[in-house]
Amino acid sequence: MKKTVGRLYLTLVLIFLYAPIATLMVLSFNSSKSRAHWGGFTFEWYLGLISNEEIMDAFRTTLILAFLSAFIATVLGTAACTGMQFMRRRYRSIIMGITNIPMLNADIVTGVSLMLLFIAARVSMGFTTVLLSHITFNIPYVILSVMPRYRELNKSTYEAALDLGAGPVYAFFKVVLPDLMGAVLSGFLMSFTMSLDDFIITHFTQGPGFDTLSTKIYSEVKKGINPEIYALSTIMFLAVLILLFFVNYRPHLDKENVKK
């Protein structure tokens, strides 16, 4: 009895969480443009998507932006964690607090202030400004992911590597980084996802003629929602789902492989 209730509750939660996405997916295969009735199954919107130059352009920009910003943020964030590891506890918690603030800060505040900063510094808006902004808001997510792993790391493995004759850099890449890799990867993925679905900050720091998918969708919506957007969103959702799945199961697969 208890079990049945538990299962029922779980099912309800899952429905609640995924019903909107399921709706979106279903509608992306609906041949009728209406959101209200089912006009039959079609790939039309997916095909239309591929031939829509503007959307494909925005899609490419989004991917490049997400990859670059996540990659740079991961490198910087991991380096920051390494530095913080050698700090006194008090300074470390102060820095941790500071890096957490941008995550809690309202996007619109971050967006507007970044825009003002770029204007004040006379940087012309475009890909560079958006990339810088994305790196900025991604770094805290990397730190959030990497830092706890760092704390539970056996500190003496690094010292053991030095003891056995490794230089500090070699020891870091050979011994410390492999241990952090899971956390670094999930930090990268979190950043990648954050960058993919950011709208507000991009909106304030983009220049004319520059569009990511989210800003593109926003301007399309002004003209009326096109089912192609459903198809696009479905693809994005599945891509992220696959990435997440990969990252969550990676450490597990790693161990299995080595044991063989």
Binding site: S156, A160, D163, L164, A166, G167, V175, P178, V258
Partner: peptide, 27 residues
């Protein structure tokens, strides 16, 4: 430490978890 002719056995072993025993010893 990497330039000294001494080696340490640490309290918590400090083996490299992602390497096999042979790789650990060969480090």
């Amino acid at each position: 430490p990497d330039k000294r002719e001494v080696n340490t056995v640490f309290q918590k072993y400090a083996l490299f978890p992602h390497m096999t025993i042979a790789e650990n010893i060969a480090f």
